[in-house]
Design a protein around this nucleic acid. Structure first.
Length: 565
RNA sequence: GCACUCGUAGCUCAGCUGGAUAGAGCACCCGCCUUCUAAGCGGGCGGUCUCAGGUUCGAAUCCUGACGGGUGUACCA
């Protein structure tokens, strides 16, 4: 439910009753439990406009407040804060409703938006490396989240399958004279070998250059080789996606090459819009206030990534009809997107009301604050990183229990991959973050294992409990009150996280939720002797809703839960 | 040089549209298991929010400047 909106309505109606006629000022979550559940700080802001003392204004609002329904207590504090406590009966009822709902009370948007989320974007000439991790999982989370909220999400995997390097690669593939399944196992090595061949042999190099032209002109033989190459390379990516448990399929692939035929049109349109200017033989757009031009066509006639991006923007806005287009790409490309978005709007490729955003993220660092590399300085292959996560997860969880080998394998996969994802997604995406195995696979603090553990503990309660789960929720103390309010805030959190494209708002919420639950559970026994039936039922219901909220939250992050840990 | 971005506890990080005494985890110290998973919970220690101005009833948050780190800067993506 949209809890905050409910509280805002109560305030707004008090404004009406009091005859205060101003734009609505929203409440905020209370900064401390002593200050209630929500606080209204608008009295101070209104003081000047109303020419009244803020405490007096607060007094007027409180006097006109309906204290019988949602809010049970309102207190004026300090210079004019109004602290608001939610009614236990109200939250108990809403929590029960949420629990009875498959979507735990989260509504689908009344006005869904068509959104394109562009993420992952691996290069077909190379193996996926850790640099692709963040784009892939942040993008996947954003897509999951928007989709859950009811938006019409179109996932777009803008793979790099076009460019001069492919001439060399397919020439080499042909020379190897096989279907590629052998030598293409290691793309990194294949690329190196092809490059070595290219540098050493003039005849081969000429052929490679010739093949570039041939692919572009649609030569059947070369196109076939190219398709084979892309197919195998994409297969590697899919292995990673599957291991990562990410919702990307071939249907989501809209490769660079897809836009190839429209690039000439882009140049034409830019030209007729009067935006093109030749500079050093290249076709450029000079934007007001920008030092560097956007180059859309090289002096040799070739196109650049800005050209492809413009074509993609046109396609997404006009053919797909997106109203929001999100690019989940490394922060270092900020300048590029800033310019391309401006060009797209100024040239009319994208209507004014379409929201274009660069969902930027920082670099992954090692413990010493250096970019994450292998010991010998190479890039870390993503698949290796994931395999290591699984191995380490295995070590971490065997420390306590004995599992069968199959069960251990299954758990380690969920836990290990989940830990990698959670560690990444729990950091504010715009900052660089330090990759640390130990922290990642710790059970303490804001980690996936702390969440998994809490979830498993709750499942354990239900394994032991024999009765049916029905009855009412009754809030019996402050901890239960806070837990219930936290549970009801879920939708508000998701909406904001979706709008800000900020997965860490979800993890922060989950951490707070779980911490509250742990405290509640410590203090308020459920199955122990001496707990009366009604109290037990109520607590079971709260525990159930908590577990389902944890599960839903983690699922949105692309993380599975385990029933036992 | 210019542009962008970051600077919060010893370390890793939260801190939402400005709100009350700046929050977590780790590390360190001290408590709590005959009973629902102690991989948990409680308590303690630890801060001039880089610095200096400004706006405001109120600034870690907004503005200006300085200092420090990162990144980007014309035909790669």
């Amino acid at each position: 439910m949209k809890l905050k909106e409910e509280v805002n309505k109560v305030i707004a109606s008090a404004f009406d009753k009091a005859g205060i006629d101003t734009a609505p000022i929203p409440v905020t979550e209370a900064t401390k439990p002593e200050f209630g559940d929500y606080q209204f700080n608008g009295a101070m802001a209104l003081a000047k406009a109303l020419k009244q003392n803020p405490r007096q204004i607060a007094q007027t609002i409180v006097e006109n407040l309906d204290l019988n329904g949602i809010i049970t207590k309102a207190e004026i504090a300090g210079p004019g804060f109004i602290n608001l406590w939610l009614n236990d009966t109200f939250i108990a009822q809403k929590a029960a409703e949420a629990r009875a709902d498959e979507r735990i009370g989260v509504m689908e948007r009344e006005r869904p938006v068509k959104v394109v989320v562009d993420y992952s974007g691996p290069n077909m000439a190379k193996q996926m490396h850790v640099g692709h991790l963040r784009s892939t999982i942040i993008g996947d989370t954003l897509a999951n989240l928007l989709s859950f909220l009811g938006d019409d999400v179109i996932r777009q995997n803008h793979i790099g399958d076009w460019g001069t390097q492919f001439g060399m690669l397919i020439a080499y593939l042909e020379e190897m004279g096989e279907d590629g399944s052998g030598s293409l196992k290691d793309l990194e090595q294949f690329y190196k070998d092809a490059k070595a061949r290219f540098d050493a042999d003039e005849v081969f190099a000429d052929k490679a250059r010739e093949y570039v032209v041939k692919i572009q002109s649609g030569d059947a033989h070369c196109l076939n080789l190219w398709k084979k190459f892309i197919d195998i390379s994409l297969g590697h990516c899919e292995e990673v996606y599957e291991k990562l448990d990410v919702n990307l399929s071939r249907d989501d692939v809209r490769a660079e090459s897809f836009y190839n035929d429209t690039l000439a049109k882009v140049i034409e349109d830019l030209d007729s819009a009067g935006m093109l200017k030749e500079s050093d033989g290249a076709q450029c757009i000079f934007l007001e206030g920008e030092e560097i031009p956007v180059i859309v066509q090289k002096k040799d006639g070739g196109y650049l990534y800005a050209t492809t991006d413009l074509a993609a923007l046109y396609y997404r806005a006009n053919v797909l009809g997106a109203k929001r287009i999100s690019y989940v790409v490394d922060a270092r490309q900020g300048g590029h997107f800033k310019q391309v978005f401006r060009v797209a709007k100024e040239a009319g490729f994208v209507p004014e009301d379409v929201r274009l955003e660069h969902v930027a993220f920082g670099t992954m660092m090692d413990k010493n604050g250096k970019p994450f590399k292998t010991r010998d300085g190479g890039t870390v292959k993503l698949i290796d990183l994931l395999d290591e996560a699984i191995v380490r997860a295995k070590e971490a969880i065997t420390a306590k229990d004995n599992y069968s080998p199959e069960e251990l394998e299954r758990l380690a996969k969920i836990v290990g991959i989940g830990a990698v994802k959670y560690a990444d997604l729990s950091i504010n995406r715009e900052s660089n973050y330090v990759f640390d195995w130990d922290k990642m696979l710790s059970f303490e603090g804001n980690t996936s294992l702390y969440m998994q553990y809490a979830y498993a503990r709750i499942q354990s309660i239900f394994r032991k409990y024999e009765g049916a789960l029905s009855g009412e929720i009754e809030i019996s103390d402050t901890l239960e009150h806070r837990l219930a309010v936290m549970l009801l805030r879920f939708e508000d959190i998701l909406i904001r996280a979706a709008d800000d494209a900020a997965p860490n708002q979800i993890t922060t919420y989950l951490y707070e939720l779980v911490t509250l639950f742990m405290r509640f559970y410590e203090k308020n026994p459920i199955l122990k002797e001496g707990v009366d039936e009604k109290t037990r039922t109520s607590r079971l219901l709260l525990a159930d809703l908590t577990a389902r909220t944890i599960k839903q939250g983690l699922n949105l992050l692309g993380i599975q839960v385990v029933e036992r840990l």
